[in-house]
Amino acid sequence: MRPFLYERADQPEAAVIAARIQGQQQAPPTAAAAQFIAGGTTILDLMKLDVMQPQTLVNVGKLPGTIEMSDQGLRLGASVKMAEAAENEIVKRDFPVIAQALQLAASQQIRNMASLGGNVLQRTRCPYFRDVSYSACNKRNPGSGCSALDGHNRNLAILGTSDKCIASYPGDFAQALIALDAQVETLGPNGGRSLAFADLHKEPGDTPNIETQLQPGELISAFVVPTGAWTRRSLYLKIRDRESYEFALASAAIALDMDGQTVRGSRIALGGVATRPWRAREAEETINGQTLNDETARGAAEAAFRGAKVYSHNAFKVELGRRTLARALLDAGRMEI
């Protein structure tokens, strides 16, 4: 691991300033000289691999963070640990898709360490991104090419890809946030702002090294999730190679507002199959107003993957993703709330 200066911030403003001093150069935040560290479960791993090379680490792990209900809905502080949010009684009862997405991620040790803010920014598990002995990775080394296009791409994305990058977004919690129309609040060198969680992450396009809208030195402070008729009837279904402690091959975050057997409104997001947290609007439009049954659920699933582009080893993800989504829709419809 390369040497770095270490700072600890006890207030968010101090964190932003400490990161800002080092973050003056023109670089996407993931390549900035100063990086925030909270739980460390992503960044220390990537520093050991020499994928990330910060000159300064600003510890934001001790910043205060709480879970509370407000007029805007559920407010999750960015410093809250995954395990704490997953086991919070309000979250489990009123926002089960959030609790399940967190609970089905990683291991208890990692959930005890990892913050919610850091979790949504966790970086891809694409093997060519993580292994610096491969020179071609546009995300790590812009303009160098993509080793995954013709390489080991079984676990990589089929939605939102470009000819520059097919790295899949690995997270689960983000799928719950994007499905539920969450807002993300940040504090940066230019003050605070609030943006739709759906606008936080970017598709790779021609610049896969730029993963989010965040600026260097900008720190996520909280997520706000509006409450609605759909939030209690919500779930997260995650399909993977082993039953626990594994990333998704395909997953679905579902929230339904039902009128009897009819879908009054749906919110659908997909994990494991896309380059960023993925809202499946086409699936929602297909199922809204329909009676929920095997046929209509399958129709929504077909719509969700209509734009899929497959690569040498991941064509199976289209059908796996469809079945995952259809089963999740039917399961959500059967929930007793």
């Binding site: 270490y6 600890r8 560290i37 739980g39 460390g40 479960t41 220390l44 791993d45 680490l57 510890n59 792990g61 208890q108 040790q109 990692i110 005890n112 360490m113």
Partner: peptide, 13 residues
Amino acid sequence: GTRVLSCLTLAVM
């Protein structure tokens, strides 16, 4: 009292 991974924890943290 909380279980964590010591390989991904900096001592200084």
